[in-house]
Amino acid sequence: MAETTARERVFDIHHLEKKFGENTVLRDINFTADKGEVVCIIGASGSGKSTLLRCINLLTEPTSGEILYHGRNIQDGSVPLSKYRAKVGMVFQQFNLFNNMTVLQNCVIGQMKVLKKNRADAEKSAKDFLERVGMLQYQEAKPKQLSGGQKQRVAIARALAMEPEVLLFDEPTSALDPEMVGEVLRVMRGLATTGLTMLVVTHEMAFARDVSHRVCFMENGVIAEDDTPEVIFTNPKNERTRAFLSRVLGN
């Protein structure tokens, strides 16, 4: 896309490899993302999509290769891990809200402990973000009292409250009942227009097609195709992309 040419590079990933014992999950991944870009990563289960995302914020430790964040290697200690993760937030398939806290506390704790904000400021911005995802009125509820879609919206608010530069979404709608997928996708569509850099692992093909600037198709631990959604969905160059899409889109 023409508009992405002058953008600042956020991630530069070179030769990333991840092995779990003898099992190679990621092999020689080369991947970039620019500021404000929305990149969807699609592919069959077990193709390494989630592992790639988890390597990017070091929840999983890569076996080899390097991940550059604004040109700095995130593993050589030049970027403190805690600061880096505050800048690169994550939304999980299983929400991972703190069960011992209310909705509001979930969005406040990181701001106070990691960003060192005072309580009043933290609560104010937490409420702003809860309002944006339509969950402000549930601020006193505990996670177990919420539906899946509501939990995921709170989880997005919690991630946004850290005012990150990048948000990683790890199959954010895969654990939801079908009727709740829409509310979460709506929030994510809204975010995509705000200039936030988003890397989204998803099985929602309509979302990938309509919202993203780029779509990566992964298979067997490699990025088999990386192109604009137009090309991927209408005229994929790779035979395996074509086979995958015809399988999931059912034609």
């Binding site: 914020n57 929840l59 891990l81 805690s82 600061k83 880096y84 993760r85 505050a86 937030g89 994550m90 999980f92 299983q94 929400f95 991972n96 809200l97 703190f98 069960n99 011992n100 806290m101 704790i109 990181g110 402990k113 990691v114 989880a155 919690r158 991630a159 850290m162």
Partner: peptide, 27 residues
């Protein structure tokens, strides 16, 4: 305690100590 609780805390930049004291140990 579900490891997801720890991952949730790590993903917003909390240190091991903060994760244990505020999230894991209370539960």
């Amino acid at each position: 305690i579900d490891p997801g609780q720890t991952e949730g805390a790590q993903s917003i930049g909390m240190t091991h100590w903060q994760t244990m004291v505020h999230v894991v140990l209370p539960q």
